[in-house]
Design a binder for these strands. Structure first.
Lengths: 221, 221
DNA sequence: GATAATTTATGAACCTATTCATTTATGAAT
DNA sequence: ATTCATAAATGAATAGGTTCATAAATTATC
């Protein structure tokens, strides 16, 4: 891999945190802010929720929020990331062991689609942050995406061992193509302008199929 | 296509614009705002440029800006769109007529990569707006992307007629996979965290290749 | 040409994310 | 225990995007 993978948990939480009072307080604040933000974002949406409101509910000062999250989108990202990480793991675990690659990918992505669909507008903010990471926290966002890519790459590896995929293909490259397709489809899925869900899922499946089989020209031998 | 395609030019510019004084004035204001915004964004970047500054330079009131662009990101998008549209057309026109699909796509995308690289941070704002369109203008953004997709689809059609691509493949679906790959790679390209340009371009090419040829399993018959 | 109706423009006021000088809490040293 | 150093927290002040009541300009109507 061409990038250092840092620990995924977003906010200031460096490795060797000694268990002093200071650390305990920070952990409490972190938890309180996280909780308040989660509740308010879920209840009122991103725009309607103000930082001051979050601070009040969390029982901290306004400025304190910015000690834990670089800005408001980053705050939402932080709230979402745990949850998304869990959803990803859960979806991966629920995958049938010996199914074709196409089915596995489709099941995985479909499940995540429905997860995001629970809060479409919040998801949009999250997904914006995810792919276009800014500032220091960007590295961690990238690392988070990379972890997911690695999981997809494992699926490709599985498929390789079953002869579904040629040995010469880079699993990680294939994974990033699948991810790109998934991400693009996901944006359509969340957009209020898109087709109905049924059609979108069908299109996603066909897109994945197309990546697996290629465009089927003469040269493909 | 599953979506109405509206005219691409972003701001309020409805079809049957009669050539009265009112329309002329609007056109002038539009042009002035566009010019001022373009100059300032290019000179100072997105964040450092204030709406008030743009308004002053354009010789209009602050509020007037918001008659032409829903918000600040939309304003940047508007500025960029023309330029990007031109770059796309130019890049498409410069494509060698009888080259393999892979080469054409790579040349096309590489050219656009370098175009975006001229203003990396502005491009990020633009690309955010492009894929996650909000509000009314969203339809036009989607239409703009669709136009580009159609152009890619034409390249696929060409490849079909040369036997490079199987007839049964949906050109538009293939195009959207290519676009997804392109878009994902582009984000990496613009990110300050990514690899060097050389490597990124190589990866892009390999990704496109992978989409064209597929993963090469046994089933691919 | 005068009046009414409608569209467009304006900028002061508003709202809220973000900053930062100051204060407070903790840990270390004596 | 007291003092000092450092880290963390605070919230009033700032800044800039956005709104909106009002005014100006244009067009339609008579």
């Amino acid at each position: 891999m061409h990038l250092h993978i840092a620990r995924a948990s977003v906010p200031p939480n460096r490795a060797g945190a000694k268990p002093g009072l200071r650390e305990k307080n920070k952990a409490e604040k972190r938890a309180a802010i996280l909780k308040a933000a989660r509740e308010l974002f879920a209840a009122k949406g991103f725009e309607k929720t103000t930082i001051q409101e979050i601070a009040r509910r969390a029982g901290v000062g306004t400025g304190t929020i910015f000690l834990y999250a670089k800005d408001k989108p980053a705050l939402l990202f932080w709230v979402f990331q745990d949850e998304v990480g869990r959803a990803e793991k859960k979806a991966l675990a629920a995958l049938p062991k010996r199914a074709p690659l196409l089915d596995k990918l489709f099941l995985l992505f479909r499940r995540l689609f429905y997860h995001y669909a629970q809060h479409p507008s919040l998801s949009e903010v999250y997904l914006r942050e995810l792919i276009i990471p800014r500032g220091e926290s960007g590295q961690q966002n990238v690392a988070f995406t990379l972890e997911f890519l690695e999981e997809i790459a494992k699926l490709v590896d599985d498929a390789k061992s079953r002869g579904e995929v040629h040995e010469d293909v880079s699993s990680l490259l294939a994974a990033s193509n699948f991810f790109a397709i998934y991400y693009f489809a996901l944006l359509g899925w969340l957009s209020p302008l898109g087709d109905d869900r049924e059609s979108q899922l069908k299109r996603l499946r066909r897109s994945l199929h197309l990546q697996i089989d290629g465009l089927g020209g003469k040269k493909a031998d």
